[in-house]
Simulated assay, not measured.
Amino acid sequence: MSVAERLRASLVLPPPADLLAMEADLLPGEFRDAAVLVAVTDRPEPGVLLTTRRADLRAHPGQVAFPGGKVDRWDADATAAALREAEEEIALPASAVEVWGTADPFRTGTGFHITPVLGLVPADLPLVPHEGEVADWFEPPLAFVLDPANQREEEAMFRGKLRRYHVIEWEGRRIWGVTAALIVNLSRRMGWR
């Protein structure tokens, strides 16, 4: 079974006990719903599509992220929001995504309740970054980012508290914070140790 097939099959399993959770100083009703698209490319060695946010953005400038954003009131659900955001951010047509389902939600320290939406996309789509939001996009190998050997823990002060977070380095790109946490949770969901 390929790594992409293992990832898809893991979506029907109950959540593992060791999922990462962000410590947040908010009550459940204070979180805003958001969704990201974990787009796995359909190739013999699948990749996953990630974006680099523009350096001049007010929120999370220059950070690596999955395509995604807030769930708007007109979105039918988290899946619709993730597909809409991916189309807006990198011109990924919603019709090109074979949606597999959703993975474990993640609450961020900045007040978002993020639902990862997983799906398969054709390889080598002519993706175009949105000039106002995305500096570029890239496709690391899925097996590389999911491998715990490539995921390390670091710590830093955030809002007066020492916080631990994960980092994945790939070809000079630094995947960290919530994006890395979502990847680590997918690894744990697959039982990849």
Score class of each variant (00 low, 15 high):
123 A>C: 05
136 D>S: 13
118 L>C: 11
52 T>P: 00
133 E>P: 01
98 E>F: 02
93 P>S: 03
126 P>C: 05
70 K>I: 13
94 A>Q: 12
57 L>R: 14
53 R>P: 08
103 A>I: 03
116 P>R: 02
49 L>G: 00
62 G>M: 05
86 A>G: 08
79 T>A: 14
41 T>E: 07
124 D>I: 00
39 A>Q: 10
53 R>G: 04
58 R>I: 08
129 P>F: 13
130 H>V: 01
62 G>H: 08
90 I>K: 00
115 T>W: 10
94 A>M: 05
109 G>E: 11
55 A>W: 11
133 E>I: 03
132 G>E: 15
58 R>S: 11
119 G>N: 03
69 G>T: 04
79 T>M: 04
63 Q>H: 10
48 V>K: 03
136 D>Y: 11
97 V>R: 03
97 V>C: 06
80 A>V: 06
122 P>M: 00
49 L>N: 01
96 A>G: 06
82 A>N: 08
80 A>E: 15
108 T>E: 05
42 D>Q: 15
132 G>Y: 04
63 Q>K: 14
97 V>P: 07
125 L>D: 03
81 A>Y: 09
100 W>T: 05
80 A>W: 04
135 A>C: 02
90 I>F: 01
59 A>F: 11
125 L>R: 10
47 G>Y: 05
46 P>R: 13
126 P>Y: 02
52 T>C: 11
99 V>T: 12
75 D>G: 10
113 H>K: 10
52 T>Q: 14
99 V>I: 11
40 V>A: 08
125 L>S: 04
50 L>C: 10
54 R>Q: 07
45 E>V: 14
115 T>C: 00
117 V>Y: 02
102 T>V: 14
87 E>C: 00
49 L>H: 03
106 F>V: 14
107 R>Q: 15
73 R>Y: 10
93 P>I: 00
75 D>S: 10
41 T>I: 09
109 G>Q: 10
118 L>H: 01
57 L>K: 06
39 A>V: 10
54 R>F: 06
48 V>H: 03
97 V>E: 06
63 Q>D: 02
40 V>C: 08
55 A>L: 14
117 V>H: 03
111 G>N: 10
103 A>W: 12
42 D>I: 09
42 D>M: 11
48 V>Q: 04
56 D>C: 11
43 R>C: 06
82 A>P: 09
98 E>L: 13
98 E>N: 12
70 K>D: 15
98 E>T: 15
71 V>H: 07
121 V>T: 10
85 E>I: 00
92 L>K: 02
93 P>D: 02
107 R>L: 11
125 L>P: 09
61 P>Y: 08
47 G>F: 04
131 E>A: 13
84 R>A: 07
58 R>D: 12
108 T>A: 06
91 A>S: 15
76 A>G: 02
50 L>F: 10
40 V>K: 11
114 I>A: 01
87 E>M: 01
80 A>P: 11
93 P>R: 03
68 G>R: 06
102 T>Q: 15
